[in-house]
Write a protein that binds this DNA or RNA. Structure first.
Length: 282
DNA sequence: AGCTACTCCTGGTAGC
DNA sequence: TGCTACCAGGAGTAGC
């Protein structure tokens, strides 16, 4: 599933192909993919020029201009099976193509999405649309002190909170499981009981996992995620718990177990991630 | 307000 | 072989 590292990879690889290009036409093949109504999408996108492509949380943001003035943005969320890629005009659209944007260099930006959960919408005020997201985990503001203070105000379990994009932006099921294992924290730990040094460990684990995953162009454990170039990522080779139920923990050899937390498959090592906090030595 | 359950979708797979 | 039932999952929304 595209999470922060996958979306970051898509932004990096797509950028040289779309920044500076004008959108000359749009072909909407599934209306809900553009927010339900093709007409405002068409009006917002066609004739505009892409001046920037950035990532915020799991969103791709294509900033648009008309006659040199800001003209909103296209926001794309890939959800589980969305894929963006640029092809020559002659290339045939796949059977899962949901939106096609024709560019002024004769090429076409394809938004494919098997499960139709993804979105490519026109947003006149992108800053407002993205305003409720939590901090970026790779930015300096996300540190142990911030996380500890933020966790103390929450009554719920650790994992559902880390998946909440309003709390922290960009993590999904895979990277939460991987980060919690590396930090030695059980996903069902109560957020407000996480101690300062544990929050610090979690910050370092999240940063480490995301940085490694970005370096490997994300994770492709099934057939869905591919870079815009059509290649799989490589971080699935570094999974320690995700999709490894029954296999030995790479740290202690105990079998990885799979439980369900907030309707999500959750993978952990019961030995390295104890349910009760370890006694502090001091 | 803050948390949990349900919904959207479809391909793949397990079971018969 | 071919059918059915069920699973995966991000995030918006409804409900407690």
């Amino acid at each position: 599933m595209p999470e922060l590292p996958e979306v970051e990879t898509v932004a990096r690889l797509l950028r040289p192909h779309v920044v500076g290009r004008s959108i000359t036409d749009a072909d909407v093949r599934w209306a809900r993919s553009v927010g339900g109504s093709p007409r405002p999408f068409f009006a917002g996108a066609v004739g505009a020029r892409v001046v920037r492509l950035t990532r915020r949380a799991k969103f791709l943001r294509f900033d648009l201009e008309r006659a040199g003035a800001d003209a909103g943005a296209l926001l794309c969320h890939l959800r589980m099976t969305g894929r963006l890629h640029v092809e020559p005009r002659a290339a045939q659209a796949g059977s899962y193509a949901r939106v096609l944007l024709h560019l002024d260099d004769g090429r076409v930006l394809h938004f494919d999405d098997v499960r139709k959960f993804g979105r490519l919408v026109f947003e006149p005020d992108p800053a407002r649309a993205l305003a409720n997201l939590g901090p970026e985990p790779l930015e300096a503001a996300f540190d142990g002190a911030w996380l500890h203070a933020a966790l103390r105000t929450r009554r719920g379990r650790l994992k559902p909170l880390l998946l909440d994009q309003g709390f922290l932006a960009g993590l999904g099921n895979i990277y939460v499981d991987e980060s919690l294992h590396r930090a030695g924290l059980h996903p069902l730990r109560l957020a407000h009981r996480v101690r300062a040094e544990e929050a610090q460990r979690l910050v370092l684990a999240v940063r480490e996992v995301l940085t490694r995953a970005i370096a490997r162009d994300g994770s492709s454990f099934d057939s869905f995620y591919r870079t815009p170039e059509g290649l799989p990522g490589g971080f699935q080779d570094e999974f320690r718990v995700y999709d490894r139920a029954g296999e030995p923990c790479l740290t202690c050899r105990a079998p990885i177990v799979r439980i369900v937390v907030g309707q999500r498959g959750t993978h952990l090592c019961g030995c390295c991630q104890p349910r009760r906090p370890q006694r502090s030595s001091r």
